[in-house]
Write a protein that binds this DNA or RNA. Structure first.
Length: 801
RNA sequence: GCGGAUGUGGCGGAAUGGUAGACGCAGCAGACUCAAAAUCUGCCGGUGGCGACAUCGUGAGGGUUCGAGUCCCUCCAUCCGCACCA
């Protein structure tokens, strides 16, 4: 009789054995086929691990373990994305150095992850706050700077009033700070910027070369927001200056009835002497300036604006004089800050024209009356448009662009919603930016040999209301000499944002202890690209986009061998509380993974999180569900009492065995962990019905389950006296021919309704099936059979009139 | 407004256009037990019928098909992004 299943004993036992045997170390034998599986490294927060973490980690642990059993050299690493605000805030509040806070949090996280039995290669653990690591973060920054992709500029930034720090656009959500929820205001500050816009085209186009789930591709494309149109110069009447606008609809130029400038457009000042209602215009501009961008769009249900009197424009296609307005529905930050308005074919222009009684001229036929309803579709035929008349959208657009280019008054132009990346943070706990400002030489990069530029010890990490980083108070550190001329210079006191360290961490894992380079050429060539990267949807337009950008830059610099970092990207759904709401302390629905491991064991937690539902969808926690998985593992445990001496599979279970291997093998690849586990539950029910399990069945079953529940399967493998360790046995093979039963269930339908299910030989032919079906459903076939449908091996359907 | 997703028993969820509800949870019954728990076995969408069975049933309404949860059209609801991007 078996002992009790006791995960508290067997789980630590096997974790220690794996560690001692270096079971999951990726080797440097670059002749073996490789597999690089990656999950997003966590931010080691003070709260410790959340039950959300194990979902993706277990999913790719399954893939990694399976790949090892299939003979691959697998890299499945883990590390810490440890710079960041919460640590700094905690340090300020409790007067503990952020380094110490980080060290403690990392220790806790690591212990928690290890208690879950992940097959991470801990020899390759990295930490973004380690100077040996950020040495190379800074090195990449220097490369970016030297390539002209990092620049400092005065610009209005999103300033979080509580964190006292500048935020990237991506970090502002609904006008408040993504992290703390405090209001975000505009502040003009000199900021380091990275020219991610330089890579906008490639970041979109190369999505076609990678295997990302569709919604990730779609959101990246939308975020980058490429649009293709034209810039057109409109003459200002009676002046030599022209007004440049951007439009995606140059085909509708004949329908322009007015122009609109953004309230911040420089022409307002430039032509202030000509504008006869300047008071009104300035008042409007002031009103607009008061609103934040957020309010401006939020409150913009009703269009507002003021006509600029004394100034007008000339439509280059027909010489018509048209009025110029200002309105805050035109943004200075996009295109040229000025638009041509075509109210007949643009919803916003239409609303504006209706409100202010401006003319609406139809130039694309195909809609309803444009005086009553806007027609925006890119279908229909051009009318009222001189040389464009009769053309469709595409032809008209091309023809017009060509015409504009020939006349020298316009040209094709692409625009993006994507903005450059604000790369400065006025904070202590981040990577120092390795730049000094010299009175004579301007911004001078440190030389590579002076890296890493270590974060100095400061007395206070308190951010300041002036917007200076706490580093600014460290005059000894700030005052330095210029690497270029040797004269007096000041160090940059802003630090990098949290996204810096995570933009390249997957490269470091390939060669984490290299002191000469961020990683060796050989390691990069062998391991890249990452074969499978799983992470949260919330990182789609932040981390994922940033890291693709850095990688593409490094590729152009000849540092990495692939144009894309990740071959495949998937995303997991959130784990919600048992009430279906997001877990949070205030809702009181938080589940601590440590408690689950304590009460049920790591294998149960792993199994449950994989069984909980479709991997990509959110799922609610259920204590009863956890118990069910524990019960399943108890049944697995007791298989040892049913084990016979027979090798191979029992005759009656042979097909089931092959079917299950096929199902599990396939489902582990397609994120369908829940159905894979269901198949294994079914199989174990069959063993119980049979009252026994053969050695062959046991070996296969344990091997299939091992990636999900590694401890119990390893223990049972040992108890059964099977050779070696299960982690390095071979993944079970199936024989396609043996996945098919010798008899089939033949469905007999009459008019599409199932009337009988009969056993038939698997190789039943059409005539035989029809004959059998007729007999089985004879009572239901009332009338003439006008048609017989036969689906081989599946069903017969009699169509009766 | 635009984009993406989701909608199936009491619950979580399964179903290459071919028996809807696999697997699990909860529930019910039986076995074991002095008893309970645990475990094992069986039942488990609604309605009607003792029953074989009949009939309805995958958010709503149409359509295609011998056959639709699945494909097409029109809606509705919920969730998540983006949001005056010209």
């Amino acid at each position: 009789m078996s002992t009790t299943y006791n995960p508290k004993v067997i789980e630590p036992k096997w974790q220690k054995i794996w560690m001692d045997e270096k079971a999951f170390a990726a080797t440097t034998d670059y002749t073996k086929p490789k597999y690089y599986a990656l999950v997003e490294f966590p931010y080691p927060s003070g709260q410790g691990l959340h039950v959300g973490h194990p979902r993706p980690y277990t999913a790719l642990d399954i893939v990694a373990r399976k790949r090892r059993m299939q003979g691959y050299n697998v890299l499945y690493p883990m590390g810490w994305d440890a710079f960041g605000l919460p640590t700094e805030n905690y340090a300020i509040k409790n007067k503990i150095h952020p380094r110490v806070v980080t060290k403690n949090n990392v220790a806790r996280f690591k212990q928690q992850l290890q208690s879950l039995g992940y097959s991470f290669d801990w020899d390759r653990e990295i930490n973004t706050t380690d100077p040996e690591y950020y040495h190379w973060t800074q090195w990449i920054f220097l490369k970016l700077f030297n390539a002209g992709l990092a620049y400092k500029t005065e610009m209005p930034i999103n300033w979080c009033t509580s964190c006292k720090v500048g935020l990237a656009n991506e970090e502002v959500v609904n006008g408040v700070c993504e992290r703390c929820g405090s209001p975000v205001v505009r502040r003009v500050k000199s900021q380091w910027m990275l020219k991610i816009t330089e890579y906008a085209d490639k970041l979109i186009d190369d999505l076609d070369t990678v295997d990302y789930i569709e919604r990730v591709k779609v959101s990246q494309k939308n975020w980058i927001g490429r649009s293709e149109g034209a810039e057109v110069d409109f003459q200002i009447k009676g002046k030599k200056e022209t007004l440049r606008i951007y439009t995606t609809r140059p085909d509708t130029l004949f329908g322009v009835t007015y122009m609109v400038l953004s309230p911040e457009h420089p022409y307002l000042d430039q032509f202030k002497d000509e504008i006869t209602n300047m008071d009104e215009v300035l008042a409007y501009r002031e009103e607009a300036a008061k609103k934040s961008d957020f309010e401006r769009s939020e409150l913009a249900k009703e269009k507002t604006g003021v006509e600029i009197k004394g100034l007008s424009a000339v439509n280059p296609v027909n010489g018509q004089e048209i009025p110029i307005w200002i309105s805050d529905y035109v943004l200075m930050s996009y295109g040229t800050g000025a638009i041509m308005a075509v109210p007949a074919h643009d919803g916003r222009d239409w609303e504006f024209a209706k409100k202010f009684g401006l003319p609406i001229v139809e130039v694309v036929a195909g809609g309803e009356d444009v005086q009553k309803e806007v027609f925006e579709a890119k279908t229909g035929t051009m009318v009222n448009s001189d040389f464009l008349n009769g053309m469709d959208f595409d032809t008209a657009k091309k023809t017009m662009i060509k015409w504009l280019e020939e006349k020298g008054i316009g040209h094709a132009k692409k625009n993006f919603k994507l903005r450059d990346w604000v790369f400065s943070r006025q904070r202590y706990w981040g990577e120092p930016i390795p730049i000094v400002e010299c009175e004579k030489c301007g911004f001078v990069p440190l030389s590579e040999k002076d890296l890493p530029l270590e974060l100095p010890e400061v007395e206070s990490y308190m951010p300041t209301d002036t917007g200076e980083s706490p580093l600014a108070a460290m005059t000894d550190w700030v005052n330095t000499t210029c690497p270029c001329c040797g004269g007096p210079a000041k160090r940059e006191t802003d630090t990098m944002p949290q996204w810096a360290g995570s933009s390249w961490y997957f490269l470091r894992y390939t060669d984490p202890h290299n002191k000469e380079a961020l990683a060796s050429k050989e390691a990069l060539k062998y391991w890249l690209p990452v074969d499978w990267y799983n992470g949260g949807m919330e990182h789609t337009t932040l981390h994922l986009l940033y890291s693709r950008f850095w990688h593409k830059f490094l590729y152009d610099q000849g540092i990495v061998p692939t144009p894309e970092p990740y071959q495949k990207r998937t995303s997991h759904g959130m784990i919600l509380g048992s009430n279906g709401e997001k877990m949070s302390k205030s809702r009181g629905n938080v589940v601590n993974p440590d408690d689950v491991v304590n009460e049920f064991g790591a294998d149960t937690l792993r199994t449950y999180e994989m069984f909980i539902g479709a991997f990509e969808l959110a799922a609610s926690w259920s204590e009863d569900g956890v118990k069910g998985c524990r019960r399943f593992l108890e049944r697995v445990w007791k298989l040892q009492d049913m084990l016979t001496e027979e090798e191979g599979y029992s005759k009656n279970l042979e097909v089931r065995m092959h079917q299950t291997i096929k199902k599990v093998t396939g489902d582990f690849e397609t994120l369908k962990y829940n159905t894979a586990i269901a198949a294994m539950m079914s199989l174990i029910n069959d063993f119980y019905k049979a009252g026994k399990v053969t050695k062959g069945e046991m070996k296969t079953f344990l091997s299939l389950l091992n990636p999900v529940a590694p401890h119990i399967t390893e223990e049972l493998w040992q108890i059964a006296g099977f050779e070696g360790r299960i982690y390095n046995t071979q993944w079970p093979a199936f024989d396609e021919a043996k996945t098919v039963d010798s008899t089939i269930k033949l469905v007999v339908q009459v008019n599409g309704k199932t009337r009988a299910v009969i056993d038939a030989p698997a190789d039943v032919d059409k005539d035989m099936a029809i004959a059998m079906g007729r007999e089985a459903a004879a009572a239901k076939i009332k009338g003439d059979v006008i048609k017989e449908i036969y689906v081989p091996g599946k069903l017969v359907n009699f169509v009766v009139k």
